[in-house]
Simulated scan of single mutants.
Amino acid sequence: MDMTHSKKNTTLEYWLALASVEGLGSVRIRRLIARFGSVQAIFEAELPEIARLPSFNPVLASRILTVSGNFPTFRERLDALENQDVRVMCLEDPDYPAPLKNLPDAPGILCRVGTLTGIGDRCVSIVGSQKPSIEGIELTLSLATQLALAGFTVVSGLATGIDTYAHSGALAGMGKTIGVVGTDLSSIYPGRNNPLAMKIYEHGCLFSEHPFPTAPSPGNLVQRNRIISGLSIATIVIEARKTGGAMHTARYAQRQDRSVLACRWDTGHTQREGPQELIGTGAFPFAPTEVDKVIDVLTHPERLETYVSGTISEQMGLFEE
């Protein structure tokens, strides 16, 4: 193998090379680094060394080593993204969002545009149906606005429905909001949300794990949900079918040991079965009229944790200092 590339490529270029390998994924990349010690050392390995690792094979190993011939292309791509004001970060970057960094499936590469550069510990995601009820829309706008006024950053997926109203409510509260997309940052989906994406750019930021041109696909949209939940201290589900995308976000949040809150509706239809199921598995329930309660437990996380653990009653928790 030509070893000359090892002296002139940056760490980010090595990460971008790994991100370009079809079928590799962030979990396997972590496994490679654990075995070889660094991203550069991966490209200096022999094919059998990679192929015999758990969940690897000769085909995947060959793909990894083959992309080492494409470093000029990766350099050009990084230059193009920089010219578009896209900040490209790898897991080793000090600016990589801390809430995501330790997740086992954290994206190896994360692209960001927008004015919000520091991602702190006051991010809350609001997710739900693409076809919400009027009551669901009103609750989302109220909740997002109140969260923004309370100093939280609202995270969502820039989809139609609840996502759109979550971002809009945060902006109405003069707050910050983060949109996580399942495409590359030049291909906002759905296209009708391009004006909203521009507002988020001005008052927050947009994230994507796709540094190369990427069309929307069901798989990518599901995968981006782990970033939405991973950036957030809590995920709030407004309305969702049991099989809806918002349920994926909630399950990612549970696996990431993040809090999940779900609206408890008095009247039932298919768009409200998801929150009810989450409440049945331990999500913090709140009524549509209890926005203040949500703000309270997010501002004082110990009350939420105490309630969910069942150690004392919710009523006692509300009287804690």
Rank of each mutant, 00 (worst) to 15 (best):
T117W: 12
P48Q: 01
V124M: 03
M89T: 06
R303Y: 00
V113E: 14
V124W: 03
L147N: 13
T140Y: 10
P72C: 04
L185C: 09
N57P: 01
L139I: 14
R112A: 11
C205Q: 00
T214F: 02
Q276P: 01
E135T: 03
A170K: 03
T66C: 10
E82Y: 08
E239P: 08
P107L: 03
K242W: 02
T299Q: 11
P288N: 09
M89S: 04
C205A: 12
P99K: 09
S55L: 07
L103R: 03
A45D: 00
V21E: 02
I109W: 02
L60N: 02
T117L: 10
P275C: 08
R28G: 06
I295P: 01
P216T: 09
L141K: 12
D257G: 12
S187K: 13
R35C: 05
D121M: 15
S232V: 05
A250D: 01
S125M: 04
A166S: 09
R77H: 08
R192T: 10
G161S: 09
L171K: 13
T73A: 12
N102V: 00
L261E: 02
Y14F: 15
Q223V: 02
R226H: 04
F286A: 01
M3A: 09
V124I: 15
S20K: 02
A17N: 10
P58I: 02
L141I: 11
H300V: 04
T140H: 05
G136F: 07
